[in-house]
Amino acid sequence: MITGKQKALSEVARMATPYKRVLVLGCGTCTTICFAGGQKEAAEMASSLRLLGQNEKRRQVFSEHTVRRQCEWEYLDEIAPLLKETDAIVSLSCGVGAQALAERFPEISILPGLDTCFMGLPQEPGVWIERCLACGDCIIDTTAGICPITRCAKGLLNGPCGGSVDGQCEISADIPCAWQLIHDRLASQGLLSRLDELPPVRDWSTSHSGGPRRIVRQDLKVKKAP
């Protein structure tokens, strides 16, 4: 999933200050399941902004709504009627959803209510960890199903660096050394000799380094009428 973290209320309130009628819009998919921007969080944020606005004697109106996904056009249509009474939307989706709103409703100001963090998974209640950088060229068949590009702080490809101690990454005791994990899993699979290989220099053009990316599937494109 895509994970996100709500911005501080004071920061959201600051962004919303110039607008009279503000819609706090939740997203029913990724940010719902990471408890950052679902229906409940949208209601809480609207309520908090309302209280803060009253305390500071601002004449603002906050409402809330949640769509199934902010990142797909078909789910955005349902909010069109609400926008007649809206000057700005605080989006509680990831950056994809927030930008979709800006594109679909160019007359409305879109304010990010959360920071998109990473693609990852919940490790335990209250803890999410990063797992994929979307580099566009997956190699985890060679690394025992563990991505070193994402999980090694230096993105190394040739095994643990000199800072790997007691299974921990040198940058933090909270981060396991990805290459120790790879080493141990390969060892348990009897595949340790894989670490002797010298992987070639990476082609980063499949990542964001190649510019904003797009996928084109000819088989799915709608054919234009002749």
Binding site: A153, K154, G155, L156, L157, N158, C161, G163, E170, I171, S172, L198, P200, V201, R202, W204
Partner: peptide, 26 residues
């Protein structure tokens, strides 16, 4: 490879790590 930027006086820096140390030898 270089010590991670987190340890230095510009911990906000973007780390490059385009190639890694063994690839630099190559």
């Amino acid at each position: 490879s270089g010590d991670h930027q987190r340890f230095g006086n510009h911990p906000q820096a973007k780390g490059v790590f385009d190639i890694e140390s063994i690839q630099l030898i190559q």
